[in-house]
């Protein structure tokens, strides 16, 4: 570290033009030494190809008929067809699955973010009795294996007569989404200086008014990220959602497992259904691209 600071001291404090010249010379030297290899892009490109191939294969299959899938092997559809998508969009037992999934996912996201907002504020601004234990306990729920909860959830929601309702799945997913939202929001809120709160109180803002008018706009991006991750984790979860539903609220992910028909597996429709489940993520991903790491790391990057 001291070596770096030395060199920093040596290079700073010179006129800007000279500094610029030194930088350029250095950059030239670096290139010559081969430190900045010309092939740096090769590794990310290969990796992205590796990631895209299976997804491409699924998309490819979704535009083929079953005969073509099982028949001649081809890298792209010879006779592209929208038949598989038509099956999904015209059969209520298929498209209802998407509606069910979206209903409970949106309910869960709304509940999670709304209850997490005040809690995250409390954790980021105050110390109170048992705060650290509570924060840790929340984390353990995010880390808890859904397999442990599947059966007790079934019994709990049966007792309340909530089996096969959207709210049951939405509440059950709060198990891991509320802690997630609290941790992410706490991470964002801790980045807002406390002086802002104090100034607002001096200016005569009441707490609710300050929170809604000043604080929420300040952490708008944090709320967006928390909502996105609640949406995503509820959307990708299957074990609990499948356990708690039978027909009326069955998620699309569970419906996908029943594509075996009398004539064997319906690969084309299965592929089309898979492609449609990828789309919500693919649409919003661009907007949260800079926060993905932060969200997955529970707001701690």
């Amino acid at each position: 570290m001291s070596v770096q600071q030395d060199t920093l001291a040596r290079t700073s404090g010179r006129p800007e033009a000279e500094q610029h010249r030194i930088d350029k010379a250095l950059a030239r030297k670096m290139r010559k030494r081969g430190d900045e290899s010309k092939f740096w892009w090769l590794i990310p490109t290969l990796y992205i190809i590796f990631l895209m191939l299976p997804i491409y294969w699924l998309i490819n299959m979704s535009f083929k008929t079953n005969q073509e899938i099982l028949g001649a092997f081809s890298l792209w559809p010879q006779n592209p067809t929208l038949h598989n998508y038509a099956v999904i969009f015209t059969d209520p037992s298929w498209y209802k699955g998407y509606i069910n999934s979206i209903i409970y996912v949106v309910m869960n996201t709304a509940i999670s973010v709304l209850v997490a907002l005040p809690a995250a504020y409390a954790f980021s601004r105050y110390r109170f009795l048992g705060d650290k234990h509570l924060f840790f306990w929340l984390l353990t729920n995010r880390m808890a294996p859904p397999a442990v909860f599947a059966l007790p959830f079934f019994q709990l929601y049966s007792a309340f007569g909530l089996i096969d309702t959207h709210i049951a799945v939405a509440l059950a997913h709060c198990l891991f989404n509320v802690p997630l939202a609290v941790w992410i929001l706490e991470g964002f809120m801790s980045g807002v200086p406390k002086e802002i709160d104090e100034t607002a109180y001096i200016d005569g803002y009441s707490f609710p008014r300050f929170f809604v008018k000043i604080f929420v706009p300040l952490i708008a991006s944090g709320i967006g990220v928390a909502a996105f991750f609640c949406f995503m984790f509820s959307w990708v979860e299957l074990l609990i959602a499948r356990t708690l539903t039978t027909t009326a609220a069955k998620p699309i992910a569970a419906i996908m497992t029943r594509t075996v028909s009398a004539s064997g597996m319906d690969w084309g429709v299965l592929a089309a259904a898979g492609v449609l489940t990828i789309i919500p993520g693919a649409i919003v991903i661009y907007f949260v691209r800079n926060y993905i790491a932060k969200g997955f790391a529970l707001g701690r990057v």
Partner: peptide, 27 residues
């Protein structure tokens, strides 16, 4: 290159887990 890499690389993270299974089962 930055947004392209970030978006494409994050895509598998956002696919429902059973679809991930299905993709590889088929693949």
């Amino acid at each position: 290159g930055v947004p392209v890499c970030l978006v494409l690389m994050a895509l598998p993270l956002l696919i429902p887990w059973n679809v991930v299974g299905t993709i590889w089962q088929v693949f």
